[in-house]
Design a protein around this nucleic acid. Structure first.
Length: 590
RNA sequence: GCGCUCGUAGCUCAGUCGGAUAGAGCACCAGUUUCCUAAAUUGGAUGUCGCAGGUUCGAAUCCUGCCGGGCGUGCCA
């Protein structure tokens, strides 16, 4: 089923071009702001009129005369300086609804004709540190983008660029050896998982020893050298740390319903043996030069504080490589080996300069011809005090604790609103609502803005929140359960071949439902989950109006069918949006 | 200094890339339940879209200059 907005755009653009004889006259079709202007409007006529220096209203008349959209709309109206307003025919809306109804999996939404390979780089936790709130936004925004792009029909390759190869591993491996292997000789075995149970503490202990204990620091330097030379002894110890860390963050992905798996991991260590080649290649192309002992590329016209060209440093004066080098190696790998047509990096906005320089450098090297590189940025998570989100004592908030608290608060809400449900069910609801609230709150904000984290706001039943959406869904399910005692819904809906609207609220809901495809397309194109949540919220509100105006159970049989269908399609759309695209659970009862 | 980004109702934020009278939620006021979950819905009030210019049929949106916040700006990631 082709997107309605595309059909309208195409037909009207065609008409404009026929009348004006000009190429490239987009109709600029969009949803109307107000119902009195109809359902859709074309804004392109004014621009076209300017192009050929004619009166826009007269031009609009000619275009409308040329236009053939009887099958979709009532006769178009011309308004204002030259808007073309379109009102959908009931039969058209009904036809679309039936098509959506007949497609259980994709709600009538086509896959793209020319699928691309899209690499999405997101989450990227640091090994040996617990995941904290700083990782949340990249993780879930990246996941939503992946899901949307995948649903559109593209091939998505998720990449979790974990931080598993810094100099800090020298001290970490040394401490682990000390605690586990040496200890096991002297005073019995110490289990590796136990030792690494509190990653944060372990890291801090290693850091402290590294700073204060000279013997330890010496050992740590030997360890990092050994690791970089691939000595098995240290490599094993490093593997232990990576594996144990994964045991910490993989369950978090599980709770967040983030689709990253260990197979998606391709951390810094993976590129370690490809870094020297990156530098050599850039030197061979005469793009990299030595400056103050470091190997640098000077891409674009970035300036430093003194107004001098800003270097993209790819090798330090001591010979070590940096994240710039790793990112260049990763970029080449993604293009050459993963066959990426497009790479989306999801990181916070502070890294914007780094990525601009990375992209520019790669472009200068000729590695990215015809490759679409996008840095999807997002703002900082703030506490209700407007300052970066911290615990009361000023520490970083662990993601695990944050999710625990969300679920706990959701439990209290469920307990208050619906105390009679079975314990087990209340638990499930609290999980769905608590985790959903955290994710939805993030998604519903414009990702570029800094975002104020507030449990009270995100768990509110009013407004654009997860609980509101989940409640909307649960209400529909409740109607369906009650209806089931009278009729077999599936049977009833399967047999429909025509629909007649008998109420304005039905029609409004129907028109909303057929716009889901466009909402996804725009949200995916712009990498903006908030466009999707915005649509879903509109849909839920439109449904609520319908719900008040149009009883389903008490309706006569001929009226009941369309209402049941509208209920079911709304439920399926909300469910699809929440579970498939946002990774948020729905519940049958709340 | 330069760069990026943000500045919209009392508060929290949308605004799909230049479109018609700038929209939601919270808070405030007034309605709606013998009816499918009122965790809902209807109506009302609320704005120098940071400021000043410019571009044009038309600007919150584009350009220029200011003001204010955040971030970044040569060997961390």
């Amino acid at each position: 089923m082709k997107k309605l907005s595309d059909i309208l755009e195409q037909r009207i653009s065609q008409a404009i071009e026929t009348v004006t004889g000009q190429e490239d006259c987009p109709a600029l079709v969009g949803g109307s702001k107000s119902a009195k202007f109809g359902d859709y409007q074309a804004n392109g006529v004014m621009a076209a009129a300017k192009k050929i220096k004619t009166n826009p209203r007269q031009l609009a008349e000619q275009i409308v005369a040329e236009l053939d959209i009887d099958d979709i709309c009532q006769p178009p109206e011309i308004a204002g300086p030259g808007f073309i307003n379109l009102r959908l025919k009931d039969e058209f809306v009904a036809g679309r609804l039936l098509e959506i109804n007949s497609d259980k999996d994709r709600l009538g939404i086509e896959k793209v004709k020319m699928p691309k390979t899209v690499v999405v780089d997101y989450s990227g936790p640091n090994i040996a540190k617990q995941m904290h709130v700083g990782h949340l936004r990249s993780t879930i925004i990246g996941d939503c983008i992946s899901r949307m792009v995948e649903f559109e029909g593209h091939t998505v390759v998720r990449q979790n660029h974990i931080g598993d190869w810094g100099t800090q591993f020298g001290m970490l491996c040394t401490l682990l050896e000390e605690k586990v292997h040496k200890a096991s000789k002297d005073e019995g075995l110490l289990n590796i998982s136990q030792t690494l149970e509190d990653l944060e503490k372990f890291y801090q202990e290693a850091k402290l020893k590294d700073d204060t204990d000279e013997e330890f620091a010496k050992e740590a330097r030997a360890a990092i050298a050994g690791l970089h030379h691939g000595e098995e002894y240290w490599l094993n110890s490093w593997k232990d740390i990576v594996r144990e860390s994964r045991n910490h963050y993989q369950p978090i992905y599980g709770r967040l319903a983030v689709k990253l798996t260990p197979e998606d991991e391709r951390g810094e260590s993976f590129y370690a043996d490809k870094l020297a080649d990156v530098v050599e290649q850039l030197e061979a192309k005469k793009l990299a030069t030595k400056s103050d002992g470091a190997v640098c590329v000077f891409p674009g016209d970035f300036k430093n504080k003194d107004g001098d060209p800003l270097p993209f440093i790819i090798q330090k004066s001591d010979g070590a490589f940096l994240y710039a080098t790793t990112d260049l190696a990763a970029l080449r790998f993604r293009i050459n080996e993963l066959k990426a047509d497009k790479i989306i990096y999801v990181t916070d906005a502070r890294q914007a300069l780094h990525f601009n320089m990375l992209f520019e450098t790669a472009k200068m090297a000729g590695w990215t011809d015809n490759i679409d590189l996008t840095h999807v940025t997002f703002g900082t998570m703030l506490g209700t005090d407007g300052k970066p989100f911290k615990t009361r004592t000023g520490g970083t908030v662990k993601l695990k604790d944050l999710l625990d608290e969300a679920v706990q608060r959701a439990t209290a809400v469920v307990e208050e609103k619906n105390p009679d449900l079975p314990e087990e069910q209340k638990k499930e609801i609290a999980q769905a609502v608590g985790i959903g609230a955290v994710k939805y709150a993030d998604y519903s904000n414009n990702r570029n803005s800094d975002f104020v984290f507030s449990f009270d706001k995100m768990l509110a039943m009013e407004g654009n929140t997860a609980p509101y959406m989940q409640y909307a869904y649960a209400r529909i399910k409740s109607i369906e359960r009650k209806t089931e005692s009278k009729v077999d819904i599936e049977n009833e809906l399967a047999g429909i071949d025509s629909l007649t609207f008998s109420d304005e609220a039905e029609k409004e809901l129907g028109k909303m439902l057929i716009r889901y495809d466009q909402a996804i397309a725009v949200a995916a194109e712009e990498c903006r989950p908030n466009y999707l949540t915005g649509y879903l919220y509109d849909l839920a509100q439109t449904f609520s109006r319908f719900y008040n105006a149009c009883p389903v159970l008490k309706a006569e049989a001929d009226q009941r069918v369309i209402r049941l269908l509208l209920c079911d399609l709304t439920a399926r759309t909300i469910k699809h949006g929440l579970t498939e695209l946002l990774g948020i659970e729905v519940v049958e009862q709340m």
